[in-house]
Design a binder for these strands. Structure first.
Lengths: 221, 221
DNA sequence: CCGCAGCTTAAATGAACCTGAAAATGTGTC
DNA sequence: GACACATTTTCAGGTTCATTTAAGCTGCGG
């Protein structure tokens, strides 16, 4: 799950980004409306956390601009004032959820997960498919033979993303974009390597290769 | 367990804070409603002890304000008058428990523990898991070979927190936040050192390290 | 049967973690 | 205050393992 965090507070921003990464998200942090608008246009985030109190453009304007361009990624608005009017404005501008500052990190996580669940129409805690089930708290998988395997951070992020997008063809670049936070890498076969490792754990047939297109996590039929 | 104590009495406040620390809690003490509201918003406490008779804002208003923002941490209300009406108001405002002054310190501890137990859905008085059991009164552990060890304050707080959150990945920053009361954390490996000590006492395999993610107190299976 | 996309293994890298001891800080006692 | 003692924190070196790179191999598609 790749996530854009738009927050100008120099203390809060990095701390939140760090915490979110700890929860298995790939996080890009920007601190201005200009950057936010650009990144949101450029990269297909799964969720955007948008602070309204930005130094340059208002968060609401950024949001409106996205929506007018047809960009429909899930947006969670963050605002300092717990202002009813602003909340209404936010929803009218196309926000998906709203959280007043200050807030607890646990609550933010809860909302972000809720958003992801909603937009993917999938159950979040206790993700199960194709005979395997993913424990998001422990970051482990249990395979159909009842064996439980521990996953490393990257393995977990990859598998979770694929399970949330079953029966979809996911290209290597698409996967890279959604699993990592920095955009730096060009040619690398990391995804291939990690697909291999997942196949070794889950069995060879759960993740199918669509040559020239990408990979598919397929519900066994 | 990190705890916020809101008490304006200049004698009672510090004394209580001290006593609570003696029982192995990380305690932040504030004496005004303004401070209380701010701290409660800022930090993810496990329990808040809230005196109603504050100099500025009423404790009830602070509580209501938290709840309206979706802040749902456990709150124990403390009040001078053992007034039935106030008690009802308290519960209606979202308090989890109530204690009339004057009270015995032991009773307060008992209620706080009950609250923590309730919110963590764990059985409390004899916290036990993975063959070891923690005595919260004596601050000792008994390992599976029957040997009883005394714990220092920090050792106890760490172990208790981990036992109450078994099978959860707890990052070092998360643990720091819940075990210490001042917010001054920088880069330090204190947690690593204390994990080491607990492992020396409990055995190497009870606390697992999930490299890059955190530590897990795991029930042996 | 040629070329390219994906497969597979092994090895390099570097941050994350471990560890023992020393330094700092705190706590009580005379 | 000055002492002993306990606890907490820092430091420095050593180790491990998740991640990435690299390089040769396989096999599909044309």
């Amino acid at each position: 799950m790749r996530l854009l965090l738009v927050e100008d507070d120099p203390k809060l921003g990095p701390r939140l980004a760090e915490d979110l990464r700890g929860k298995g998200f790939a996080v890009d942090l920007v601190s201005t409306g200009i950057d936010a608008e650009f990144m949101g246009d450029e990269i297909p985030y799964d969720v955007v956390i948008l602070d309204l109190g930005l130094p340059d453009i208002s968060g609401l304007d950024v949001l409106r601009s996205w929506r007018s361009k047809g960009n429909s990624q899930a947006v969670l608005i963050l605002t300092a004032r717990d202002d009813w009017q602003e909340r209404v404005d936010g929803f009218q501008s196309g926000a998906d959820d709203y959280l007043g500052k200050p807030f607890h990190f646990e609550e933010l996580i809860e909302r972000v997960n809720a958003l992801i669940r909603r937009t993917n129409q999938k159950v979040g805690s206790g993700l199960a498919a194709g005979g395997i089930s993913l424990d998001e708290r422990k970051q482990t998988v249990t395979t159909d033979d009842g064996q439980e395997y521990e996953l490393t951070g990257t393995e977990f992020r990859l598998l979770r993303y694929m399970m949330m997008h079953q029966n979809e063809i996911l290209s290597k670049t698409h996967l890279t974009e959604h699993i990592y936070d920095d955009v730096s890498d060009k040619d690398s076969n990391v995804i291939e390597v990690y697909i291999r490792r997942l196949r070794k754990i889950l069995g060879e047939d759960l993740i199918k290769t669509k040559r020239g297109q990408g990979y598919v996590f397929e519900e066994r039929s």
